Computed example of a mutant assay.
Amino acid sequence: MECDNHLNSAIIFLWIGIIMDRLEAMASLLAVVDTGSFSAASRKMRVPVTTVSRRVAELEAHLRTKLLHRTTRKVTLTDTGAPYVLACRKVLEQIGEAERNAAGEYQSPRGELTVTAPLVFGRMHLVPVIADFMAQFVDVRLNCRFHDRNLDLQDEGIDVAIRVGPLPDSSWRAQRICAIRRVVCASPDYLARRGKPLTLADLEAHDCVGFHGFDPNGSWLFPSAQGASVVPIRSRIMFDTIESAIDAGIAGMGLIRVLSYHVGPAIRSGVLQEVLAEFSPPEVPVQIIHRHEGLVPLKVRTFVDFAVPRLRTALAL
């Protein structure tokens, strides 16, 4: 009898091992499909390329069919692979949701939350929100990734992102926070000394603070319904960080042209004043996005619900 129990236990452990290997192979296949290559999938899963390749090859051998077309430039699904990948995705999503339920992730906000935002936006506006959020929800750990390039949410494992401008990917759930625009402003001291520009032509007579990211050619572009106006500016000083350009504007060194969320607090406090508002380009949206498919973890829903009203208040101009 004891021998039979040992045999049954060995068989159970064997089947568990087989199932775990199969799930890892499915996850590797999905990573290749979602990222478009074996090398990108290996980076996403943090395993060697050879491991990803071996898992997919073993899966194809088990199924006795080819799931992927491989070329030197791209990887695409075969006719058999397409429906199999859909089935794999459902299986892994159900397992993930069962694990999150078992861990209590849907009962209370907990676990690691990865958030990305533009660099200055994150530093100025998101960090204060995150500080308040962490003080209230002590079981959530934040991984903040602030970059001026848009990180790939799928490849980089991003839970929540702040995006400025139109969204090219409709597979993510988006909630509008506000709209922003480019503004021209200066310190009250500078405007008292030099006068307020009333037309774009008036910019010729003013000192301007240049920022390499917005005006690399020594001019400012003002789009309108009648067409774009390219206005040469006289930059006596150029900066390669937006913070330095704003500091120079506050110090009275000239007119600056930045995004409204860069200088909202400074304009509200009166250390900067906006000019030429009627020539502002069209507004662009600021949105918060997160995964759309399946149940949304409570940590994500809670963070979005917490952040949106606070960011709307902070970004009001």
Rank of each mutant, 00 (worst) to 15 (best):
V183Q: 05
S42Y: 10
S9M: 11
F133D: 00
V209M: 07
S53D: 09
L23T: 00
R73Q: 13
D155W: 02
G252L: 01
F306T: 00
A102H: 13
D79P: 03
D132Y: 07
F146A: 01
I250K: 07
V209S: 05
L30A: 05
G218E: 09
A102S: 15
V258G: 05
K196A: 06
N5D: 12
F133L: 01
I246H: 03
R268Y: 08
H6R: 02
T72Y: 13
A102E: 08
A225L: 04
R194Q: 11
I180P: 05
G111F: 07
R176I: 06
L151Q: 00
P128Y: 08
A57W: 08
V115G: 02
V263D: 05
F222H: 05
I19M: 15
P118D: 08
G96N: 14
L29P: 01
G227N: 02
V308E: 08
L315H: 06
R89Q: 13
N101E: 15
T76F: 04
V284K: 15
S37M: 02
R89P: 07
L63M: 11
V115F: 01
V209E: 05
F279W: 10
A248E: 09
I177R: 03
A82N: 12
R123S: 10
R46Q: 14
L167R: 08
R236C: 11
E278A: 09
S219E: 15
R236S: 14
E274N: 01
Y106E: 09
L295W: 11
R55I: 04
A225I: 00
L29H: 05
R70K: 14
L298Q: 05
I250F: 05
S235T: 14
F211P: 06
A248Q: 05
I237H: 12
S108Y: 10
H69A: 02
F279L: 01
D215T: 11
I267H: 01
M45P: 03
G122E: 05
S171W: 02
T116A: 01
R173F: 03
A316D: 10
F239M: 01
R181K: 13
L167Y: 05
S280E: 01
V129I: 03
G36D: 03
F239S: 07
A161N: 06
L119H: 12
F306P: 06
H212T: 13
Q94L: 10
P83R: 02
R54S: 06
T114K: 10
A251S: 08
V286K: 05
M238F: 09
L276R: 10
S171Q: 11
M124S: 03
A205Q: 15
W220K: 10
I233G: 03
E24L: 13
V164I: 08
E278R: 09
T78R: 00
R163C: 12
R301K: 09
G195Y: 04
Q154D: 12
